[in-house]
Simulated scan of single mutants.
Amino acid sequence: MATPYIDPYQLDQHRRTVDPHRNAQEARRRVLELAAFMKREEADDAAQPRSRGTASGHAVDMFLALLQDRLPVWLRILDDLMYLVGKGRVSENLLPIARAGIDYYCEVQAASLPAFTSPSVTVRFREAMRDSDIGPMSEIVPLTAYLAAEQRAGRVSPDVVPVASARLLLAGCFSHAYYETLLGADDFLPSRDEVAEEIVRELRLEPPPA
């Protein structure tokens, strides 16, 4: 699959207008709208009703409540990266981001497994996500904007593609969270700290020393 195109103007606007607090509040509002959409669709679905109080219904409610709490915090962490442009080392700035990403995805995936056992619920969630602005690009854009800003400052190699590197970092976090959710956190898997270090190191973002 090709790397999605991100308009440089969109990145520049994000860099100039980023307000982590406002964006976090906006994300929380959108999750509430997503939950309202799913319940509205549920009420219209007479063929497969999902009554409140059932195990499936409770799992969906718990997942949406967790998403409302965790997603704004995660997006704020990504937005805060813009305050670090030109400061410290890029890899050191990204290390806590990778660790936070693993933590976030582990929580969300663990809650999503019991929530999406019904095909009708999964379809409703997909429809709701298409109409929201809290899909994957809400994570990719702030991370890409940071890497692009560091690249302009000469602190990221010129041959790095910021959006591709952003996707790889997030994918690495998501992948470890998936395996940890599936297999459990034990000696079979490396620790979250070890994985975060590996993800950032293998991106090879910083230019070699002169």
Rank of each mutant, 00 (worst) to 15 (best):
A2W: 02
A2L: 07
Q13K: 13
Q13G: 01
H14W: 09
H14A: 00
H14Q: 04
H14G: 00
R15I: 09
R16K: 14
D19C: 11
H21G: 02
N23W: 04
N23P: 03
A24K: 11
Q25R: 13
Q25T: 06
E26T: 15
R28C: 05
R29E: 08
V31H: 11
L32H: 12
E33L: 15
A35G: 07
R40C: 02
D44F: 09
D45M: 03
Q48L: 07
Q48H: 15
P49M: 03
R50S: 05
R52C: 03
G53L: 05
T54N: 04
A55V: 10
V60P: 03
V60A: 06
M62E: 15
M62I: 02
F63E: 01
A65G: 13
L66M: 12
Q68F: 00
D69M: 09
L71P: 05
P72M: 10
V73K: 15
W74H: 14
I77C: 03
L78S: 06
L78H: 12
D79S: 04
Y83D: 07
V85D: 08
V85S: 11
K87S: 06
G88F: 11
R89P: 05
V90H: 07
S91Q: 12
E92A: 15
L95P: 10
P96Y: 10
I97C: 01
I102T: 01
Y104C: 03
Y104G: 00
Q109Y: 14
Q109F: 12
A111G: 00
S112L: 08
P114I: 08
V123W: 05
V123Y: 09
F125D: 01
F125G: 00
E127S: 11
A128G: 15
D131H: 13
D131E: 15
D131G: 15
D131I: 07
D133T: 14
D133C: 09
I134N: 06
G135L: 01
G135A: 10
P136T: 01
P136Y: 06
M137E: 11
M137I: 06
P142N: 08
L143N: 07
Y146S: 09
E150I: 09
R152S: 07
R152I: 00
A153P: 04
G154E: 02
G154W: 05
G154Y: 03
V160D: 06
P162Q: 05
P162L: 01
V163E: 06
A164H: 13
S165W: 05
R167S: 09
R167K: 10
L168H: 10
L169K: 14
L169P: 13
A171I: 02
A171G: 09
G172S: 13
A177L: 03
Y178F: 14
Y178C: 04
Y178S: 12
Y179I: 07
T181W: 07
L183N: 09
D186K: 13
S191T: 14
D193H: 12
D193M: 06
A196V: 00
E197F: 05
E198W: 08
I199R: 03
V200A: 03
V200E: 07
R201P: 00
L203G: 11
L205Y: 11
P207A: 03
P207D: 01
P207K: 09
P209T: 13
P209N: 12
